[in-house]
């Protein structure tokens, strides 16, 4: 039953021309956008304190003092929203054998020859890497972030611990921003993807092209809306 675990609550086919496939339910999308907004705000406020040339970004948050206190709280929001999202999606993101066959043909994917690639479930390896990288980096960031959150946890750890935490925090942040760029760019590059997170649906053609096994599983399991 490995394949059907890719099907998630709310995933369904709506026949028509074109066929429409529900990919993300409303709660999932709300959660995604809370996470996305938090991540962007965290990147801006964090970068402001990362390099002097970016300190002007504190202006977006009402100055340095405001940036300093608001950043960790946004971090808490990100952690909570992402981890609700995480438990909604993690099963479909477990890497499978087919993902590595797919990865070996990554060139064909970038060149648009997806017919040469094996049929995929709800996510491809790239999406899964983004998912797990974010999951790991967010845990690292919240742990190191709490260690360096002097307003509440100044006495909880010793200064040498805080130094290491702050170093790891900055590296994790850089990596997270890089993963974020990959994620956003991929969603734009693969046309027809963004609507999955706005309207919650994709076209049947999109599902056929990118996640054919997922589409076949939905059809095979009768996840077809009869009303249409």
């Amino acid at each position: 039953m490995a394949s059907s675990s890719d099907i998630q609550r709310g995933d369904a086919i709506h026949p028509g021309d074109p066929v429409i496939v529900s990919r993300y339910t409303t709660p999932k999308r709300i959660n995604h956008w809370i996470t996305a907004t938090s991540l962007i705000l965290l990147a801006l406020s964090g970068l402001a304190l990362f390099h002097p040339s970016l300190f002007f970004l504190t202006g977006l948050f009402g100055g340095g003092q405001n940036t300093r206190w608001i950043h960790p709280w946004i971090g808490v929001v990100l952690f909570v929203s992402f981890y609700i999202f995480f438990f909604q999606l993690w099963r479909a993101n477990i890497p499978r054998k087919v993902d590595f066959v797919w990865a070996a043909h990554a060139k064909d994917f970038l060149a648009g020859n997806e017919d040469k690639l094996p049929e995929l479930g709800k996510y491809n390896l790239g999406q899964k890497v983004v998912f797990w990288a974010m999951a790991a980096l967010i845990v690292v960031s919240i742990v190191t972030g709490v260690i360096m959150w002097d307003q509440y946890f100044a006495t909880a750890t010793a200064i040498p611990t805080k130094r290491i935490a702050i170093l790891i925090h900055s590296i994790a942040a850089v990596l997270m921003i890089c993963v974020f760029i990959v994620h956003v760019y991929a969603a734009i590059w693969a046309r027809g993807t963004l609507r999955a997170m706005t309207r919650g649906t994709v076209t049947g053609g999109w599902a056929w092209k990118h996640h054919r096994k997922w589409l076949r599983d939905l059809a095979g399991h009768g996840r077809i809306d009869p009303a249409e």
Partner: peptide, 27 residues
């Protein structure tokens, strides 16, 4: 690079797949 776009034939494939599929509950 060229963006990855969904073609008309992809949509037709999807429609055909849905046509052939068992309806809700049947499968």
């Amino acid at each position: 690079a060229k963006p990855s776009t969904v073609k008309r034939e992809d949509e037709e494939h999807a429609e055909a797949l849905v046509e052939e599929a068992p309806k809700n509950g049947e499968g």
